[in-house]
Nucleic acid binder design. Structure first.
Ligand SMILES: [Mn+2]
Ligand SMILES: [Mn+2]
Ligand SMILES: [Mn+2]
Ligand SMILES: [Mn+2]
Lengths: 236, 236
DNA sequence: TTTTAATGTTAGATGAATCTAACTTAATTA
DNA sequence: TAATTAAGTTAGATTCATCTAACATTAAAA
C-alpha cells in the first residue's frame, strides 16, 4: 500500500517520462514538477527504490520500474475516471476537475473504480481529451499533432489540450473552443507568428505558445485515405 | 484546514457525545473508538485545543467547541452523502459503503458536495437510515425506538440501524431485513429473551443484542392519534 | 585542461502522528 | 481514611515528509 505522497511521485515520473517520450528524469526536474526541494526528492527516491518502484542510482537519472509504472498508471486511470464523473455527472466545467481529481485519485478501492467505470459507460477519454488507461493497465501515449503545426487555410478538430491548468483551460473557453470544435487557420502573421483562427464564425488571434498546447485531428487527406485502403487490403 | 486525522478525532467526538446523549468523553473512550492508545489522544487533544476545536483541561473530559462541532457535522454530512451516492448510483450493498466513505469524507471541496447533493436530489437519509446533516449544519439526533422495546404481537417498520459494521449489516441482510421492511414480533422467549420475528412471512429468532441495534417506527396507536389531534387543535 | 555552473546528495532540524514505559491523578472500595 | 484500581499524562523514541545549509559530482565553457 502506497502513501499519498508516494503515489504522487510515481505519477509525476510517469508524466515526465512517457508523456514527453523520455527515458529518465533528474532530481531537479521532479522537484520542480512536485513543488518540493531537490533534497526532498533525493530522500524519497531512496524510499521508492527500497520498495522497488523505481530504478535509481545516486547522481543518475530515475525511471519507473515495471511495478512502479503499473501502479502509476492505475493512479492516472483513477484521476481521469474521476474527472469524467465530475464533468459528466456533476456538471463541473473542465477547468475545475483536475484539482479535485488530485484528491480523489488516492481513494483506495478497486471495486469503487470498477463500478464508477461501468456507471460512466467505460469512457475512453477524459474531459481534456486524454486517454483513460484501461483496467488491465494498457496505456500508451500517441504522438499528437498541435494547432501550431497547421498551415494557413487548413482546418482541424480539437481533440485535446497539453495543459490542464485552470488558467489555460479558461483561456481556451474564452476563445470559444471545446473538444470537437472545428478550427480553421485563416493565416499566420509573418511578423510575430500570431495565428488567426476561426471557430464557429468567430475569429481570434492566438500565440504559438497557446497553439502548442492545442491538440488537433486533421480530416483525412487524399493520400492518407489511399494508405488506409492498402492496409485494409493487407488485413484480408 | 484540518488534517485527515484531526477530522477523524472531531467526528469521533461528535459520535461519542451527541449520538449517545452525553456531554463529554474521556481519553480512553476516544482512544478505544479510534483504535489508538490513550497517550496518542492526550497529545492530539492539546493540538485540537490549540486550534480551539475542543474544550479540554487535563485530567478532565473533552467536548467539541462550537466551531469544532460545526466542522465535525460537515464531515458527517460528506460521509453520508457519499454513502448515498455509493449505494444509489454505483449499486454498492449497504455493508460496503461505510469503509469507502471513511476515505471520501476527507475530500476538500464545498462545491463538490453541493453538486453531489443536488445530483442525488438532496437526500434526507443515508443508506443506513441516518439523517444527513443539512448544508447549514443543522443536525440533531432524535431518540430512537428499538426492536427490543416492542412487545409480542406488535409490528413496526425498520427505519435504521445502530451499528454500521459490515458484519452486522450482512446479518441484517440474512434475516431478510432492509429499510422499510415490516417486522412483526411474534413472541419473546421467557427463558432466554430471544425475539421471534416475522418478515415477509419468514420467521427468525434474534437476540436482544441484535434487537438493540434495530431502529423501528411503530404505526400510530389509537391514543397517540388523539394526542396528535389535541396538538393540532392547540395550533389553530 | 582547468574553471565554473548546474545538478544532486548529506547532515541536521522540524512537525505530525503514532508508540511504549513510567509516572501521576482521580475514583472506588475496603 | 487508607489502599487499590482505573483513568490520564509525560518522556522519549520512531516514521514520514518536508526544509535549509553545506558539501560533492558531473557537465559545460573558457
Ligand atoms: Mn487532470
Ligand atoms: Mn484530465
Ligand atoms: Mn458510515
Ligand atoms: Mn451511514
Amino acid at each position: 500500500m502506497l502513501t499519498f505522497t508516494e503515489e504522487n511521485y510515481i505519477k509525476a515520473l510517469l508524466k515526465l517520462t512517457e508523456e514527453v517520450g523520455v527515458e529518465a528524469v533528474g532530481t531537479n526536474e521532479l522537484a520542480a514538477h512536485l513543488g518540493v526541494k531537490p533534497a526532498t526528492v533525493t530522500d524519497m527516491l531512496k524510499r521508492l527504490k527500497e520498495k522497488q518502484l523505481v530504478s535509481y542510482e545516486k547522481y543518475g537519472k530515475v525511471s519507473l520500474s515495471v511495478s512502479g509504472r503499473s501502479l502509476a498508471i492505475d493512479v492516472l486511470r483513477k484521476h481521469r475516471l474521476w474527472e469524467t464523473f465530475l464533468c459528466r455527472c456533476l456538471g463541473f466545467p473542465w477547468h475545475q476537475v483536475h484539482e479535485i481529481a488530485e484528491q480523489l485519485e488516492h481513494i483506495q478501492s478497486n471495486e469503487l473504480m470498477d463500478r464508477l467505470d461501468a456507471f460512466l459507460g467505460f469512457p475512453q477519454i477524459d474531459p481534456h481529451g486524454d486517454l483513460i488507461p484501461s483496467k488491465d493497465g494498457v496505456f500508451q501515449v500517441k504522438p499528437k499533432r498541435t494547432l501550431s503545426m497547421l498551415a494557413a487555410t487548413q482546418s482541424a478538430v480539437l481533440i485535446g489540450v497539453g495543459d490542464n491548468s485552470a488558467a489555460f483551460l479558461q483561456y481556451v473557453d474564452a476563445v470559444g473552443l471545446q473538444l470537437g470544435s472545428e478550427i480553421l487557420v485563416k493565416r499566420i502573421q509573418p511578423y510575430d507568428a500570431l495565428i488567426e483562427i476561426e471557430i464557429n464564425g468567430k475569429t481570434s488571434q492566438v500565440s504559438q505558445k497557446f497553439a502548442d498546447q492545442i491538440f488537433v485531428d486533421t480530416p483525412p487527406q487524399r493520400d492518407e485515405i489511399s494508405d488506409v485502403g492498402l492496409d485494409v487490403e493487407g488485413d484480408l
